[in-house]
Amino acid sequence: MAYSNAFAALADPTRREVFERLAQGPRSVGDLAEGLPVSRPAVSQHLKVLKEAGLVTDHPEGARRVYQIDPQGLGQMRAWLDRFWDAALAAFQAEVERDDDKEDEA
């Protein structure tokens, strides 16, 4: 997922409002449309964009579809860095200790 997509998706004020509501917990399209000055199909359209940007996911719950913030979305970059540093620091540790062993032998 490209993060620029995520930010472009949030540039629209109504879409941000939909997203903020989802930040409070999973909601159906009907729940989300309540109190918003836009139609239900418009909310669906916003959800589609948010979903394509990797910001929200959906799953069926009985007869309706429930949307929630994608825990894999923006957290992905952090997870990637976390793994990267694990590997890099392990390599660093091996290098320091290899060097140390060499000196001990000298």
Partner: peptide, 20 residues
């Protein structure tokens, strides 16, 4: 894209990350 967005984005990012 950030430059075109109003000051609300930071809060949203925060909310998103908290949820994530």
């Amino acid at each position: 894209t950030i430059a075109r967005m109003d000051s609300g984005w930071g809060q949203i990012l925060g909310l998103f990350l908290a949820a994530a």
